[in-house]
Simulated scan of single mutants.
Amino acid sequence: MSLDMRQAETRLERLTVHEALQRLEHERASRLTQLRAIDEAEAEAEEHVMAAQKGTILRVLTEVEAALARVQDGSYGSCQGCAKPIPVERLEILPHTRFCVPCQRNAR
């Protein structure tokens, strides 16, 4: 097997710290933008709907902040349920996830 193939396989198994930080920063910025939009629209919308949306966004922001801390301590990308690596495809879709799919199912 060539060196290029091994590097490609390793790349597919893990996101780089830079990639993880970029995805998490983008996720944070998106959620903050959503919160600002909700704050601006609150006067025109039903209060309970806006409160529910705001609660969901704040929950995700908390998860994003926790994921950023995991990047810093080196545990990002490892499942908190089974300690196996979380597939890079899952981290690309949900960069703040703490669990692999099987462990997420069990956590419910």
Rank of each mutant, 00 (worst) to 15 (best):
D39G: 11
A41E: 14
A67Q: 00
A67E: 00
T10H: 07
T62E: 14
M1Q: 11
R98C: 03
E44V: 13
Q80V: 04
R59G: 09
D4W: 05
E42S: 12
T56V: 05
A20F: 01
R108Y: 08
C103S: 06
V71Q: 01
Q22C: 09
R98Q: 11
G74Y: 03
P87N: 09
A66G: 04
R98T: 05
R108C: 08
A107K: 12
L94W: 14
A69N: 02
Q80Y: 01
D39K: 11
L61Q: 04
R23E: 07
R31S: 02
R36Q: 11
R105L: 10
L68R: 14
Q53S: 06
M1D: 09
H48M: 13
H26L: 15
P102A: 03
T33Y: 08
A45G: 07
A20N: 02
D4A: 11
L3I: 07
R23M: 14
S75Y: 12
I38G: 00
G55L: 03
T33H: 05
P95R: 00
V88Q: 15
S78E: 08
A43N: 15
E42T: 09
S75N: 08
H18K: 13
F99W: 09
Y76F: 08
I57E: 03
E63N: 14
A67F: 04
E19P: 10
H26S: 15
G77S: 05
D73N: 15
E9W: 05
H26Q: 14
R28G: 00
A8N: 11
L32F: 07
K54H: 10
R31L: 13
I86C: 00
T97A: 06
D4K: 13
V101L: 13
E27N: 05
P102D: 07
C100V: 02
I93P: 01
A29V: 05
Q72I: 08
R90Y: 03
E25A: 11
Q34T: 14
N106I: 06
A20K: 01
T62H: 15
P87Q: 10
Q104D: 05
E13K: 12
I57T: 06
L32Q: 15
R23V: 07
P85Q: 02
M1F: 07
M5Y: 11
R90W: 04
S75A: 12
V17R: 15
A37F: 06
V71T: 06
Q104S: 11
A20W: 01
F99Y: 14
L35S: 00
A29K: 06
P85S: 10
Q80I: 08
E46D: 12
V49E: 13
L21T: 08
R23H: 15
E9Y: 04
R108D: 12
S2L: 09
